[in-house]
């Protein structure tokens, strides 16, 4: 427990997670909410406004930033500077540091998602997901898949700098397929198909279904589970403590 608290403090001091993962998407949310055309219901979006579509996208923005960039950078840095090695000589062991990092990042992500939804609801009158349980399931699945990918990056990257670079390179195309630049609903069919096979594309699909009132359908669930299982197994296979 004290490790989790310490890791949270360190994440906050590190600023990558809080600034890029929380503050930046939150500011984006507020700016977008203040653009009148963003608030117009659009036929192409199935009657939703572009702003409403962006709320879950920004929740994914936050999760992906923490799992793909903040987490691998921190863990690979810990390995590089011998933090994990030092922990091997204590009764606690390095695995718990990894666990504490995960819990700390997840906690930050839960708070961020709650803040985004609240600001969108209270500030701009955006409806909450019709199916909160479905939304929570979708969020957990995306978190699982992204953390698994982040851990795989940590396992394979030889150094902290490489981990950051690989995480960032993965981040942008994945956010594209989540609809950060073009909403998924407005993508051409080929891109939409590709999108649904990516973790964030599958995630946004699950979120949309939750907004519409249903539980996530089998396809996004299976895709996200597959990413989580395969990447976790690969990460375990190649992970090094030093």
């Amino acid at each position: 427990m004290s490790l989790v608290v310490a890791e949270m403090k360190l994440s906050v001091r590190d600023k990558v997670g809080p600034l890029w993962g929380v503050a930046f998407p939150l500011i984006l949310l507020i700016i977008l909410g203040n653009v009148p055309t963003m608030r117009q219901p659009e036929e192409a979006n199935g009657g939703l406004s572009t702003f409403e579509i962006y709320v879950p996208v920004l929740i994914l923005f936050n999760l992906a930033m923490l799992a793909l960039i903040a987490l691998p950078t921190t863990l690979a840095g810990y390995r590089e500077t011998g933090v994990l090695r030092r922990m091997q000589t204590t009764p606690v062991g390095p695995a718990r540091v990894l666990g504490a990092q995960l819990v700390a990042n997840l906690a930050i992500a839960v708070v961020a998602a709650a803040v985004f939804l609240t600001v969108a609801r209270l500030g701009f009158g955006v409806h909450l997901p019709e199916n909160p349980a479905g939304f929570a399931i979708g969020w957990l699945l995306v978190a699982g898949a992204l953390i698994a990918i982040g851990l795989l990056v940590t396992a394979l990257a030889p150094r902290r700098g490489v981990a950051t670079a690989v995480g960032t390179v993965l981040y942008f195309p994945m956010m594209f397929f989540a609809g950060l630049w073009v909403p998924v609903t407005q993508m051409p069919p080929l891109l939409r198909d590709i999108s649904q096979a990516t973790p964030l594309g599958a995630g946004i699909q699950a979120f949309q279904q939750a907004y519409e009132g249903s539980l996530p359908s089998a396809r996004p669930v299976l895709i996200l589970l597959a990413y989580a299982v395969v990447c976790t197994a690969a990460a375990i296979r190649w992970f090094r403590w030093e």
Binding site: R13, Y78, V83, R86, T89
Partner: peptide
């Protein structure tokens, strides 16, 4: 477990997080 409780180690290469 018992070994880590009884033996304190100061390693050549072991460090702490920069911001701790």
């Amino acid at each position: 477990r018992a070994a880590t409780e009884r033996v304190g180690v100061q390693l050549q290469s072991g460090q702490l997080p920069e911001r701790l």
